[in-house]
């Protein structure tokens, strides 16, 4: 499974969020390919799931993509609870 973590620049916050997502997946006992990128690249890249702040990933929401909206990017419990039903 491929998970794409997205922020505006694809540098700082998506990078940190990707680390949190990896930790959350490990706690759930799941494996996935987690990468991070900017919004422009994300629109052209295929992934099984797109994770980011609400106002960012809303722009990727075409009704088909699996989208996860995160408030606290550093919170493992929040990401875990949002990922679990989708895995």
């Amino acid at each position: 499974m491929k998970i794409l973590v997205v922020c505006g620049n694809g540098l700082g916050s998506s990078f940190m969020m990707a680390l949190t997502v990896k930790k959350a997946l490990a706690e759930l006992g799941q494996e996935a390919d987690v990468t991070h990128t900017d919004l422009t690249t994300a629109t052209a890249e295929q992934a099984d799931m797109y994770i980011g702040a609400g106002d960012i990933v809303d722009q990727l929401d075409d009704g088909f993509r699996k989208i996860v909206r995160v408030v606290n990017m550093m919170s493992i419990p929040e990401i875990k609870s949002k990922l679990e039903p989708l895995l």
């Binding site: 505006g8 700082g12 916050s13 940190m16 702040a53 609400g54 606290n72 550093m74």
Partner: peptide, 17 residues
Amino acid sequence: KPALDCPTIFPFAPNAV
């Protein structure tokens, strides 16, 4: 404490953004 890039605080107040 990790010191992180500024957009990490954006989701806490999207209108203020």
